Amino acid sequence: MTSETGRVPKSVQNKRPAQVIVAPPPGVVTGPLPPTPPVQGRSPFRVPRPRRSATPRPLRGRRAAGPIGVIALVLLFVGLFVVGMGLGAATGFDLGSLFRGPDEPPPRTFPVLDPSRPERLEIPSIGVSAPILEVGLANDGSVDVPPLKRHNEAGWFDGGPTPGQFGPALIVGHADTRTGPSVFHDLGKLKPGDEIEVSREDGSLAVFEVNSVENFDKDKLPVQRVYGDYTRPYLRLMTCGGEWLGGREGYADNVIVFASLVDSRDA
């Protein structure tokens, strides 16, 4: 078609005839698609930035621990644990160093008592009422136990904290003898929430609450957990249990009561 003047406009002359694109047969690999022409304006694919939360203000009197401080603290504890494990593998664990405690005690958000020798142990739920004597280390480096003639008395390990101080105060006792049951015969019957009372030389009474009662193979005792936790005042009661092996080996396991100080009052 021509215009009334008989001339074809250039805009029409420059137009290319319509093309029909036929899809290639299956299996034919075609060339790459042409790049998408840039579009002016904002991209439709936008990743929103996370909102910045308000930085918490440090508590008065304390410095906020930055990432470097946290990493240093973690490395410190890992290093101490690795050193402890190395000493244990070489020497069978130095209980004296484990019971030494931290250089600086943690904040007191719970009862903490001054050092005072324990004198008597009361566990009402299993009918224990026994005097406490002092025990040290046996010849093999393990914690000693009361002599058999005093098997109805408990023994406080005098190389560790006294009950009520920061750290795990350890009290041991026999489960039985050839003549019958001993002071800690029913220790395994304790349950979480049961109370344990320790009368101390200074006239105070330290009240502990049972957290757990657990059995461990004597060759797989979690030494760091039993002896090395100084995050608060703890009590550990320990006796023998499990299968009777006979002879000098005795029982196969240790029965351990884990308890925390919850109260104190005058005895």
Rank of each mutant, 00 (worst) to 15 (best):
V135H: 05
V70D: 11
D94Q: 09
G84D: 09
R117V: 02
I256Y: 02
V183C: 09
R108W: 04
D266Y: 03
R232E: 11
A267M: 07
V210Q: 07
T30P: 01
P102C: 08
V183Q: 11
G250H: 07
V207F: 04
L73Q: 10
V70R: 13
V78Q: 08
P105D: 12
N152P: 00
N215R: 15
E119V: 00
G159Y: 02
V12T: 11
R51Q: 15
S199M: 14
A169V: 04
R52A: 14
G88K: 06
W244L: 09
G127M: 08
D114M: 09
P17V: 07
D253P: 00
G173I: 00
I68F: 13
R232S: 11
V207L: 14
L113I: 02
R62E: 10
I21E: 12
D94N: 15
S260Q: 07
V82C: 07
A154Q: 04
N14P: 03
F258V: 03
R108I: 07
K10S: 12
R62N: 12
T109Q: 14
W244K: 09
L33R: 15
G31W: 02
V20Q: 13
G203K: 10
Q13T: 15
S97C: 08
G159K: 05
E104F: 03
E134Q: 02
G96E: 09
M238G: 04
P56H: 08
R117K: 12
E209H: 03
G69H: 12
G167E: 04
P106N: 06
S125W: 06
P106R: 11
N152V: 02
T231L: 05
P24I: 04
P131Y: 01
S116R: 00
L261E: 00
P107A: 11
Q19K: 15
K189Y: 11
R49Y: 12
V78P: 02
K189R: 14
P58F: 00
L133M: 13
R49K: 14
Y227W: 05
A206C: 03
A267C: 10
D176C: 09
E249H: 14
G188P: 03
A90V: 08
P147N: 11
V78R: 07
L33F: 05
P50Q: 12
E243R: 15
